[in-house]
Simulated scan of single mutants.
Amino acid sequence: MRLNHQQGAAGEDAALHFLQAQGCKLLARNWHCPFGEIDLIVKSGNTILFVEVKYRKSKGFGGAAYSITPAKLAKLQRSVEHYLQQQHLTNTPCRLDAVLIEGDAAPHWLQNITG
């Protein structure tokens, strides 16, 4: 089932508010490049976090985490590399995270989803 734009934006809003409550500062939202889109780019301390947001109404069919496939991770990694090159950020600590939201449950923050 594909979510409409309004539901996706609401999920991103919830994820952003959650991350801001953890002390993160927004750098960019829905950043696009030739390789894809990064939902949220935030800064936590000195670390830039590239955040994939996944919302699902329920945990059925594997829940939100199920949709982060190896192919999706590869696209995200290429997008992150492109952002870092474009912004001339060579020695900046960064990582790729995910915020999963399922139904009315609190967001679940997965840090360093590439291992």
Rank of each mutant, 00 (worst) to 15 (best):
M1I: 14
M1L: 12
M1G: 14
R2M: 13
R2A: 11
L3A: 10
L3R: 15
H5F: 06
Q7R: 15
A10F: 02
A10Q: 15
G11N: 04
G11C: 04
G11L: 03
A14Y: 03
A14T: 11
A15E: 03
L16E: 14
L16I: 02
H17M: 06
F18V: 02
L19M: 11
A21H: 05
G23K: 04
C24Y: 09
C24N: 08
C24G: 02
K25M: 07
K25W: 06
L26K: 07
L26R: 02
A28D: 14
N30R: 14
N30D: 12
W31V: 05
W31I: 07
H32W: 14
C33W: 00
P34C: 01
G36K: 02
E37L: 00
E37V: 09
L40H: 10
I41R: 05
I41N: 03
I41K: 07
K43M: 12
T47F: 10
I48P: 09
V51L: 05
E52T: 11
E52D: 15
V53F: 09
K54D: 08
Y55R: 13
R56E: 13
K57T: 13
S58C: 11
S58N: 14
K59D: 10
A65V: 11
Y66V: 09
S67F: 14
T69R: 10
T69K: 05
K72S: 13
K72M: 12
K75I: 02
L76R: 00
L76P: 04
Y83R: 06
Q85W: 08
Q86I: 03
Q86D: 09
L89N: 06
T90F: 13
T90I: 09
P93R: 12
C94L: 09
R95T: 12
L96H: 00
D97I: 08
A98M: 01
I101M: 03
I101W: 05
I101S: 05
E102C: 00
G103V: 03
G103A: 10
D104F: 02
H108E: 13
H108C: 12
W109E: 10
W109M: 02
T114R: 01
G115S: 09
